[in-house]
Amino acid sequence: MAANYWESTQRKHWLFTKDELAAMRAKLEAEDPNLVASFPLPQLRHLNIYFNQQSPTYFGSTLEINRLGKRMGLRQQALATAQVYIKRFYTKVEIRRTNPHHVLVTALYLACKMEECPQHIRLMANEARGFWPTDFQSQTEVARIGECEFYLISEMSSHLIVHSPYRTLTSLQGELGLAQEDVNLAWSVINDHYMTDLPLLHPPHVIALTAILLALVLRQDPSGRLPGTAASASGLVAASAALAQAQAQAQARAAMMAGGGQTVPGLAPQSSSGLQAMLPPQSPAGEGPAEGNKNPRMAKVHRFAAWLSDSNIDIEAMVDCTQELISFYECHEQYNDKNTREQINRFVKARGLDK
């Protein structure tokens, strides 16, 4: 059962709607409004950026859990699982009641066990002390990580197996004709999605397909790096519009089939694919025949469009994933690491959670 996402605890117990997530978080804050008022925190996306990894090809830095993971040479799968554990845990426990750095290290320690790359608890504590000396300053930290591990397991109801989008991405590489650079770019988008609520909102295969779409519509510079944030947002908007058109066409085709192949009033047939908005611009005049040989990227987009139209993938969910990523990239423009760190340290020290 563990290898089957459709029968997994992730699908049955850890997928929510946005309204459900908001209600759960509001309930946690309502339990102690004085605590919430005394220690205001940055918006949730900024906390996610602080805790989770940041792709170095996008913004030139790595943060917290990724810093620790890279220093220890851990696999990306373990880092991703740890980030999901943190998100799940904080849907059950108000963040101001914990030391987030203890939770972060413990989640990574537990994820390494589950992803079959276990690390000794003393090694984990020693490495963490190098990053957060005030939070890991005594020999009792090993016992504290052990206690926090049971706390995490209990709050997550022992649901520890996490299905990630990476597997879907690699399995579709050959079928969709993706080059390694396309896979690398999609991999970066998947890394970024862990700084949003998407792991709690949509299945991993939907996220992987959204990442592939974005890898095909976003442009890279000659060095192979992702474009700047503004350019990326433009590409994401185009992808979202393309998916919306594709969804409308799918509904029109379904209605026509239900009507015996006849055009249904109010649903005019469209002569071109809704995914045409994803296609790269035509080659300038003089660079090829009038029709132009399709460049490799255009061919990949057509192949993906055909594959998507023949599948049962929830396009509306892909639209939502795309829009969530748009919001995230825009939000990152206002992120201030120093302010976020200071606000977290303030409630940790004031409540004695660093001792």
Rank of each mutant, 00 (worst) to 15 (best):
G73C: 07
Q249G: 01
A26N: 15
Q276L: 09
Q323S: 06
S157Y: 13
L308E: 02
G73Q: 11
E31H: 12
A143H: 04
I121C: 01
S273Y: 06
S271D: 05
G259M: 15
V319G: 04
R122Y: 14
A238N: 03
A128K: 06
P280F: 05
R122P: 14
T170F: 11
T196F: 06
S234K: 15
R303M: 02
Q54M: 15
V217I: 02
R167Y: 14
A78M: 12
V105F: 03
M257Q: 02
L152S: 05
Q247S: 04
N34V: 15
A143L: 01
Q334M: 04
A254Q: 12
A285Y: 12
D354K: 03
A37H: 08
E287Y: 07
N52C: 07
P269V: 00
S271V: 09
E116Q: 14
V237R: 08
A125S: 02
I326H: 00
Y85E: 03
Y329W: 11
G146P: 02
I121Q: 00
A238L: 06
L108A: 00
P280H: 07
Y329S: 06
K70I: 03
I315H: 01
A125H: 02
S38A: 10
Q139E: 13
H205F: 12
L108K: 00
M24C: 15
A239L: 07
H102P: 10
A208P: 03
T263W: 12
Q343L: 15
H193I: 12
S38G: 13
Y329D: 09
I344R: 00
C321W: 01
Y329R: 12
A305V: 09
P204I: 08
V206D: 09
Y151S: 07
E333K: 15
Y335C: 13
P56F: 04
H102D: 13
S232H: 08
A250T: 10
D337P: 07
Y151M: 11
E291F: 14
L108S: 02
A239N: 01
M114R: 11
W307M: 03
L108H: 00
E330W: 08
P40V: 11
L160I: 05
E181Q: 15
M318G: 03
S309K: 08
A231C: 14
R97D: 12
V301I: 12
E175G: 06
S223V: 06
Q43G: 15
E149V: 00
H332E: 10
A78R: 05
M156L: 13
F131R: 01
I49F: 08
K12R: 13
M318V: 02
N339T: 10
T263G: 10
F59A: 15
L110N: 00
L169A: 04
G174C: 11
A299M: 08
W307G: 04
S223A: 09
I145S: 03
T340M: 12
R67D: 01
R144W: 01
E31I: 13
I65Y: 05
G274M: 08
L279A: 14
A244S: 09
L176C: 08
S234R: 09
M72D: 04
L201H: 03
V217W: 00
R346E: 07
N191G: 05
Y5K: 02
G260K: 03
P56S: 09
L226D: 07
E333P: 05
K300V: 10
L201Y: 01
M114D: 02
V162E: 04
